[in-house]
Design a protein around this nucleic acid. Structure first.
Lengths: 299, 299
DNA sequence: ATTTTGTTTTTTATCTACAATAAACATTTT
DNA sequence: AAAATGTTTATTGTAGATAAAAAACAAAAT
């Protein structure tokens, strides 16, 4: 097959789940815009909804006849994009314990195991290479560099440079800027989580990502933004398979965040730098402690 | 065709050009290592050299019969890798005056113009996207973000963060480290160029790249190294098509480099930071002045 | 025993083809 | 006339095939 219609299926599920009986649906371009797909795909969704008897569709008349059930939706395996499937499968492999640094990565083998063509795997690896975890030897194989202590330290160094820069920029945003409102909302979310920390400490990583993303956006620098995207993805998988998210550690991070937020709100650059450094220092420790303890390797 | 044998042709040219009549050639693995290719390719080269009557080859006996002439070599169009061809062609297009920011990039059209398949173009664009000059909308086209003032400023900001870091690290290298010898050599090259500046100011960009690369290697950080690779490529093409390399500007940069080198050699961190900042500030100005003067545009 | 050469297998780089999706164009409706 | 729908075209995403190049294996020579 040339291409799976996962865009259609995923959007269909999303749209069907939001339907309410007896409501009238908007125009095709509007539906397309809501779903973030082209009108062609929106029409394909309407066509299927109509065929399934979920809506009555006649030109501009689009009425919801019945509420779709779970059986009307496509199973989740069919809605994942190939890129996501490859990413998950690949991350699982390289974060697994038996994936030793220096290991060769074979495109064809990977493709076969995932059940996909080599082109997609190649393109994924090229995109993924910017995270610094793999490296290519021209005309030859990819090499796994691995989630090592060196990687963590290099990542942390750049992260600190970027975040100090972004935090300083954040402190210079004009008082009316939307970011201040967003920051206040995140501050409140921190307080809410802290109030129920025993139940909710596992949700911290999502809040953490939201907070740092907000800070980095203040820098308006594409390289910083891209780097943070990379960090977020790597951390997402890393912490998913390395459940070292101790309650105490997250609680401490929340307090650091609150200090950091207070410093930002004060507008005092020296205070911002101090709070930012304090948090980054402990984030670095957390990252290093999450690594498997091994003898330092040459390489 | 599945794949051009450009690796073979390029290596053949390289090896043939270095042959001297009546000398004996080393073993196959050694030739392969010298050329940086596999033994299969090395054997293909020996086979052709033998067929062309340039060498006599019998197992371990490999004697050069005659000096290869220019007519024995493959023409340069046949030795360029597809990646290089696409890169040159693409850079030429996006740095051309009519390439307006926001322009769509069409994979198929690009492939047709370059005379190549779409896969190679796609892979090139994916790799190239990390430079921040183009951006992809999923399931849709690439967009040219362009070599704009914003791009230059964002690049300069990150460059400054990284170089301050690397310079500080450089200053901490132990006295016996190879980098100090390399630095001394580069210092002498600066003095030599300065002595004949009227003739040689055009060669400065090569020296400049060599100098900054040496500094960045001290950081031993893959993200910093990768970023500098990106900068080097972008600048390479940018300055090639924008000949703003005024003699005065390069001369001033050489003096800044010499101050910077002296500071590094002094080991005084405050002096290093000061000299580094001074040079980076003027490098930023040079970059900004090399851009077409335009009204600041909205995003 | 190690290195070199000879031979075969594996893997990558690249092309072509085609379904899904987006985008453009044409017609109809308000 | 502006926006919606209907229809057609262009472009992307992915699979599969194949030559080049690398790598592995086997035999021979030092």
């Amino acid at each position: 097959m040339a291409r799976q219609n996962t865009v259609f299926k995923e959007a269909y599920n999303r749209y069907a789940a939001a339907l309410r009986t007896d409501t009238a649906l908007p125009s095709e371009p509007e539906i397309a815009a809501q779903l973030g797909v082209s009108r062609s795909t929106a029409r394909a969704i309407l066509t299927r909804l109509s065929e399934e008897g979920i809506i009555r569709w006649n030109k501009r008349q689009k009425t919801v006849l019945r509420q779709p059930t779970d059986r009307d939706l496509f199973p989740s395996e069919e809605t994942d994009s190939l890129h996501d499937i490859i990413e998950r499968s690949f991350m699982q492999r390289i974060l697994a314990d038996d994936a030793a640094p220096g290991m060769q990565i074979n495109e064809l083998e990977l493709a076969r195991e995932i059940g996909t063509g080599t082109t997609s795997v190649r393109e994924f690896l090229i995109r993924f290479s910017r995270f610094g975890l793999i490296e290519k030897r021209p005309n030859s194989h990819w090499t796994l560099k691995g989630f090592t202590r060196e990687f963590a330290l290099e990542l942390a160094d750049v992260r600190e440079m970027f975040e100090l820069h972004s935090a300083a920029e954040f402190g210079r945003l004009p008082k009316g800027h939307q970011a201040w409102a967003d920051l206040a909302a995140i501050r409140d979310d921190h307080h809410a989580m802290l109030a129920d920390i025993n139940q909710r400490f596992r949700d911290f990583s999502v809040l953490d990502e939201r907070f740092h993303l907000l800070i980095h956006r203040a820098s308006k620098n594409r390289f910083i933004a891209d780097f943070y995207d990379a960090i977020a993805i790597v951390f997402h998988y890393h912490y998913q398979w390395n459940k070292t998210a101790a309650r105490e550690r997250n609680e401490r991070a929340i307090h650091e965040h609150l200090d950091y937020i207070a410093a930002l709100e004060s507008g005092d650059q020296a205070a911002i730098e101090k709070a930012c450094r304090a948090h980054l220092h402990s984030a670095r420790q957390t990252l290093l402690q999450s690594l498997p303890q091994m003898a330092s390797e040459s390489g």
